[in-house]
Structures are given as structure tokens and as C-alpha cells.
Amino acid sequence: MDMPSVTTPTVKTPSTTAADDAATASTKISSDFNTFLTMLTTQIQNQDPLKPMNAEEFAVQLATFSNVEQQVRGNQLLEQMVAQSGGGDLSSLSGWIGREARATMPAMFSGAPITLDPESPIAGSTHHLVVRDRAGTEIHRQSISANGEPVTWTGMVKGGKLAQSGVYDFSVESFEGQNLVATEPVKTYARVSEVRSSPDGATLVFAGGVEIPATDVSAVREASAG
């Protein structure tokens, strides 16, 4: 028997929903505003010259006109504010420059140890931190606990050598016996060197040319010494 088709609903984030609601409200008010103008103009054009509009009534209508205009402008400003808060505007994010932001992203190694912030593994009984270069080649693997505590990679690679300066990717591989049961990306802290504007919102730039959307950041802290 054929199963009925199911349409997957679109899930909106709070900022997207707020922006949509503001835009809808603004569109409705703008429409009412234009209708009001049309009615007022028609009334003035068609009034009896011998019996002109009462001055008090006209004043009330002009006041209404002013209130509607202010409401339209207020809703336009609200749309702009919601759009800015959704992606993070440059003026507020400029304070992040020089600080360390935490996100799931590659990190630049230049000789100093890198502190990683893995989540508690979702499966498996043994867990390994895995370091790969940008070509995807594994250069280091070490056992870690399942408690989700920060892990430090000193830069050591296979053969006991120090890794070359460059950008590296980090993940946690979880095993049950010899079977790989889960692979999860790892969050790390890195210093923000630049904030850029993009069509999709603000973008943060880190050492080594690493770039991520500002919305991917889960924490910001003062930069560590060194």
C-alpha cells in the first residue's frame, strides 16, 4: 500500500522567527499606512467647498497619520536590529579581537601547546584524540578519558617529533573493543585576529587563515599568556 507523503516542516531559529514576524508586521502596517493616505487624500479632494472638513477632525486625522508613520519607521528599525542580532554586528564583535573564541574548528599550531575541549563521548568504552593535517593524514593519536575534560596537544607527532607549523584538525574516535562506534569533532580555543562582514553575517578570522561564522562560537575568554 502506498504511504502518504509527508512534508517536513521548516524549523526556524528564534532570530529568524523574530525577523519574519517583524517583517510581516511592518508589511501590514505599511499597507494600512498607504490605505490611510489614499482615504485622506480622497476625502480632501471630494469635500464640499461650502462645507469644508472640520478643523478638529482634520487635526485628529493628521495626528493619526503621524502615529502610523512613526510605527512604520519603528518596525523598519526593529527589522534592522533583529537582523544584526541574528548574525552579530561588527561593532559588538570588534571587542572579541585579541580574545580567544571556542568553536569546532581547525587550529593553527606554531610551537605552543594547543588546549582542546572535547565533549563527553556519546558511545564506546575507549576514546582517542586524533590529529590530522589539512590533507587528512593522521599525524598523532592519544588516549583520553570520557569525562569531557580539556586535553592538551603538545605538538608531538608520530616518531616523537614536533609537528611543523600549520593548521590541524582534531577529532575524538570512540571504540567498543576493536570497532569504531563514533567520531566527533573537537572544540578548541583560538585567538580572534579579525572580524569581517559577509552576506551570511559576521565572520571571525583566526591565525592560519581559519574562518568561521560568529554564530558557531560557544564561548569567549581572555587570551592566555604567550
Score class of each variant (00 low, 15 high):
G209I: 09
F170T: 04
K187R: 15
T188N: 13
Y168T: 01
I212Y: 04
V192N: 03
G177C: 06
R196E: 13
Q164C: 05
L204E: 01
Y189T: 03
V186K: 00
Y189C: 03
G166M: 08
F170I: 03
E194C: 07
E176V: 02
F206N: 01
Q164T: 15
A207V: 05
S171H: 06
S198H: 09
A207Y: 04
Q164A: 15
S171T: 12
F175C: 05
E173G: 04
Y168R: 00
A202P: 01
R196M: 14
E211V: 12
V186N: 02
L180A: 12
K187H: 14
R196I: 06
S171N: 12
V181F: 06
G160H: 11
F170C: 03
A182F: 03
V205I: 14
E173H: 10
A163D: 03
V205N: 04
V195L: 04
E173Y: 06
D200A: 15
G209Q: 09
A190T: 10
V210N: 08
D169R: 11
Y189H: 06
F206Y: 09
E176K: 09
S198W: 07
T203V: 15
Y189W: 15
S197L: 12
S193M: 14
A207I: 06
L204H: 02
L204N: 02
E211C: 11
Y168K: 02
